[in-house]
């Protein structure tokens, strides 16, 4: 590697390092919550989120409320099958079976 390329490479590395260590603002964190819960964040971003959460009770509460929201949404019930739809579908099934 030429010296110039090495220097460029090092500069890039340092820039990236600096970016990773930049703390997250709360405004940014709330937009990363779903990706965080889905485990879809690159390790460096995940670490930034966790560092922020460790120091910020408001965002910790926000994350907890998102978890509670998800759990509560899971308690909803979809509509039940109407008797008319069931009859129509069973008739179709019998037609398919005999066809």
């Amino acid at each position: 590697m030429s010296e110039r390329r090495t220097r460029r490479w090092l500069a890039r590395l340092f820039r990236r390092g600096a970016k990773q260590q930049e703390p997250l603002a709360c405004r940014e964190l709330v937009e990363l919550v779903t990706a965080y819960l889905e485990r879809a964040l690159p390790p460096a971003d995940r670490a930034r989120v966790e560092a922020h959460l460790a120091a910020c009770p408001h965002c910790t509460r926000y994350l907890e409320q998102m978890r509670q929201t998800i759990a509560a949404t899971g308690k909803l019930h979809e509509d039940d099958l109407s008797p008319a739809a069931r009859d129509a579908l069973l008739a179709a099934f019998r037609g398919w079976k005999s066809g």
């Binding site: 709360c26 405004r27 919550v33 509670q68």
Partner: peptide, 30 residues
């Protein structure tokens, strides 16, 4: 955004942070 802009200070930290949802919100949520 997920949370309205005006709930954050210009530098991006909470201005109006979320309030707690009381004791055992799980029960209320159901």
């Amino acid at each position: 955004p997920a949370v309205p802009e005006d709930r954050f200070a210009p530098e991006g930290n909470w201005l109006l942070a979320p309030n707690g949802w009381g004791d055992s919100p799980e029960q209320k949520l159901e």
